[in-house]
Design a binder for these strands. Structure first.
Lengths: 193, 193
DNA sequence: CGCGTTATGAAGCACTCGCTCCAAAACCAT
DNA sequence: ATGGTTTTGGAGCGAGTGCTTCATAACGCG
């Protein structure tokens, strides 16, 4: 019927996610996106609509890939606390890895930079955070069932406590390079459960 | 000797802080700064050097005013947990106040948006965070002295735990509008001490 | 093949970016 | 008042912004 696309849409979104993640929304120009995706501006606008829409797609992709990986770590074999620790360690090491560019958590970056200005971004990040909370809640519940975690307190409340500490650590990791300091806070969190 | 300045430097920095705080570093243009400070570009550049330097001054001012207020709440009369709670509640209500523009914590915004790109910004935010940690540590220590907080665990470790939860809550408040949800996490944190 | 349709690359739109330059203005010491 | 020094407003620099336009290219279908 017509000329087919010369690019793989998934690859393009992944490349765009990488660029937005690294430089933020305002810090990324449409030319940056053209360069990292390999698309010309006309293809990019024809396919996705514009910078904002592509950013939303990138956030979606982050949820499908990186957040999914966090959740997989939470559902891996092991005790509840081992699984919580594995997830936090994984993120922390990612945050501190200079080779990855110290770009942090894309969802958190979006929450801080864009959520107040764009309701769609706010909704997308909210969905990611809510999903993480749910998964944490399930792990805490499992820990309570085995007696590993005190059953007296509400699982949801404990999950939210872990989640807050987790994102707080990721904030601190932006200016704190000492892994052992952050690591000890992970252990304090688990000890408090 | 020469023509004196027509503006108050402190007022200008405070106005710049307000603008950077609201719109972020990349989201603020030099024209925005001229408008909010009332200065022409020549005065602004002659006095401060440039956008980046003014941002650093704004961060300094944040430390001197807003962070100082947080610390004052930590040192107000009351039990240790009451003081921790007062500080967290104050920030949370500020974060959720639509009239303030949902701009969050300026130091945290700087940590997330700029710290990886600018060592001076990283240092400045780090200093603020370290100071907050120290003050939290003092309050925790006081709580342990009165028996309000279990003396078994290291005060510094508990302070870092509180700090992480605190900044994590401020991240979540960017997408979570329900005050009671965030509030319950504050209480979970205090209960875990 | 030729047609209808869509994708592509390049040029470029109006506008904004951070910043500079400079003549005029405003002060104080003499 | 004059001279010396600094500040001020405004015009404007080159580069970059998000995005559009359009002729051309590349396909599947008849």
């Amino acid at each position: 019927m017509a000329r087919p696309r010369q690019f793989d849409e998934d690859r393009v979104i992944t490349a765009a996610m990488d660029t937005f993640w690294r430089h933020g929304y305002e810090g990324t120009s449409t030319r940056d996106l053209c360069e990292s995706t390999g698309l010309g501006p006309s293809s990019l606008y024809n396919t996705f609509g514009g910078k904002r829409e592509l950013y939303l797609r990138a956030l979606e992709r982050y949820y499908e890939t990186v957040t999914a990986e966090q959740i997989a770590l939470l559902n891996a074999p092991g005790s509840a606390k081992e699984r919580l620790r594995a997830m936090m360690l994984h993120s922390l090491d990612s945050d501190l890895d200079a080779a990855e560019g110290r770009r942090g958590c894309f969802a958190m970056n979006a929450a801080v930079e864009v959520a107040a200005l764009d309701p769609d971004v706010k909704r997308s990040v909210r969905r990611t955070f809510d999903r993480v909370e749910d998964e944490l809640c399930a792990v805490v519940g499992a820990g309570q069932a085995t007696g590993e975690i005190a059953a007296g307190r509400d699982a949801r409340a404990l999950a939210r406590l872990v989640q807050s500490t987790y994102y707080g650590l990721r904030v601190l990791s932006r200016v704190q390079d000492d892994r052992t300091v952050l690591l000890s806070t992970v252990d304090s969190t688990l000890a408090a459960l």
